[in-house]
């Protein structure tokens, strides 16, 4: 290496930018830069991509064909019509667990020290992660919707209502990404993030109206299921997909999504800024 030549080249280069830009544009830019870090890695890890494809296919087929024949839901001729919005909701919610795993992974690696020493908007590390996961979830949703169509699920109402239902599902998934981010920041290892991220989502999604009518449950369980935000979400999405009136469920579901996002993004950002290895 010839030092002098290189040093001269350095002098010709533009002067370094020393001051730190502020404002929403920069928050967005830093967050998107961080999201790109994860998105670029996606095609390089085909295992994850295959898993993200197979899981929704499996869920749709299993629930539809295993339970489909045995379950009757009052008011619905076809169980598939009832079931699919529930499967969609459960799968995108499970997809949020990747956020916790990813955050835990970042926190256990040296990369986090580098990011903390950069003049970026610090919570971008978390925002970028949640943004990249919502991209993954959109992909998962598209796969699931196609498989759902093949097994006989049809949109009963308007296209705009169906799009609204989809946005509602993805928004809910995004909100839970923040819950998972907080979990990922709170645990000590990636394995712990995996268990802690999934375990509570089973009761949350099954004790709801996603797969069966809550009326078939014992009274105490039914009370929980009726109050469960996941029930509100599935009811609202199901109504929008099948062309009936979602009523208050829609607003309650939207309120939950916004509330969870606001509260947990605040908690996660605070946790992130207070945690150091």
């Amino acid at each position: 290496m010839t030092t002098t030549a290189r040093a001269a080249a350095d002098e010709l280069a533009p002067p370094p930018q020393r001051e730190v830009p502020r404002g929403l544009v920069w928050v967005w830019r830093d967050s998107w830069t961080e999201a790109l870090r994860h998105l670029r890695a996606v095609p390089r890890n085909p295992d994850l991509l295959i898993f993200a494809t197979i899981q929704p296919i499996m869920f749709v087929l299993l629930f539809n064909y295993v339970f489909g024949g045995a379950i009757d839901v009052p008011g619905y001729d076809s169980y598939t019509q009832y079931l699919m919005p529930g499967v969609f909701a459960q799968t995108v919610l499970f997809g949020s667990a990747f956020t916790g795993i990813g955050v835990a992974e970042d926190m256990t690696k040296g990369i986090i020290d580098r990011l903390r020493s950069l003049p970026m908007y610090q919570p971008s590390v978390l925002v970028g992660r949640t943004l990249s996961d919502i991209c993954r979830n959109i992909f998962t949703f598209v796969v699931m919707f196609i498989v759902g169509y093949i097994v006989g699920f049809r949109i009963g109402g308007s296209i705009s209502a169906a799009i609204g239902a989809t946005l509602l599902l993805l928004g809910f998934s995004y909100a839970f990404s923040w819950v998972q981010a907080l979990i990922g920041l709170s645990v000590k290892s990636v394995e712990a993030a995996n268990s802690a991220g999934f375990i509570w989502m089973f009761p949350l999604t099954f004790v709801s109206s996603a797969f069966v009518s809550t009326a078939s449950m014992p009274q105490w369980l039914q009370t929980f299921a009726d109050w469960n935000p996941f029930t509100k979400l599935t009811n609202a999405a199901r109504a929008l997909y099948t062309g009936s009136d979602p009523g208050a469920d829609l607003w309650i579901a939207i309120a939950w999504a916004i509330g969870i996002t606001v509260v947990f993004s605040f908690l996660a950002a605070r946790k992130y800024s207070r945690t150091s290895r």
Partner: peptide, 14 residues
């Protein structure tokens, strides 16, 4: 942070 460069003990690379 806008003025420093840091190389820690463990390679901080993704």
């Amino acid at each position: 942070r806008a003025r420093i460069g840091l190389t820690g003990q463990y390679a901080a690379v993704d």
